[in-house]
Amino acid sequence: MKASILRFVLKRIALGLLTLFVVSLLIFAVTQALPADPAEAILGREATPEALAELRAEFGLDKPIVAQYTNWLTGVLSGDLGTSYATSTPIGEYIGPRVSASFFLLLIAAVGSIPLSIVIGANAALRRDHKFDTTSSLVSLILAAMPEFVVGTILTIIFSTTIWQLLPAVTYLEVGAPPWSDVKGLTLPVLTLLISVTPYVSRVMRAAMVEVLESDYIEMARLKGMNERTVLWRHAMPNAVGPAFQVIALNLAYLAGGVIIVERLFNFPGIGSALADAVRSRDLPVIQFLALIIAGVYVLTNLLADVGTVLVTPRLRTRLK
């Protein structure tokens, strides 16, 4: 039983790695094979052909594309991520702290939004068509319809500029400093992410819960004298979270991309702002690595969701061999 689950997880991890490999091919093809010339981007239009050729040789851009890819891949696999073109610093040093800052942001948003959406969704389903349900449905629909930058801007207007001056409109976080050292600066970005994910997930949770609450086994649980708490937590919840896991995973993965805009908005020193800078300066090694990281988040969250769904669904779990 336990071994079968382990085997399933290992198989999914192998599949995830394969996905990442394919993604790395695509990323490399799209960034490196494009005609845009990083050397020209760095040296400007006035640069002499000799200077350009010298820089290209330094970056290894004069080698055949396949060699460039294998160089890059072996580098990534051995921990040597290369050097940023724009800042001339090693990528590990340049990106590392930003990645951990962004992950911290993501983690707080996830830890906050998952239980929040489950509670809101479950309560809306329990009080179907009553005040809590209609209000939360309306509010979540409005919030879900707004893009993150609008939510972020409105929050800024309310909490830091026009109405109250409680919180800073931008994060003053030194690169490399732990993100929790600026709690005030962290509040608005986290809140923005929370508001952009929670409505959607809670609606999905509500739908899953409504379906479960209408089922025969819930009626049966009530008819054999279970109290409402047991009905909700023991009988309904395990059957409702399975489908919700998939949606939560997709949303977290989406956050990894959505975080770019939010970080930009609040000047948060994470992967989002690093990626935006790198794109502007055609800093290929940075773009490639960040794209790989975001793809990794997608693969990881989906893997967690699939494993989670299997773990809470006996019918799927017992089918594993």
């Binding site: 025969d216 086994y217 009626e219 049966m220 649980a221 009988h235 395990p238 809470v312 669904t313 006996p314």
Partner: peptide
Amino acid sequence: ASSLNPALR
């Protein structure tokens, strides 16, 4: 089949 909870032993 539908009245026993599929998630519980």
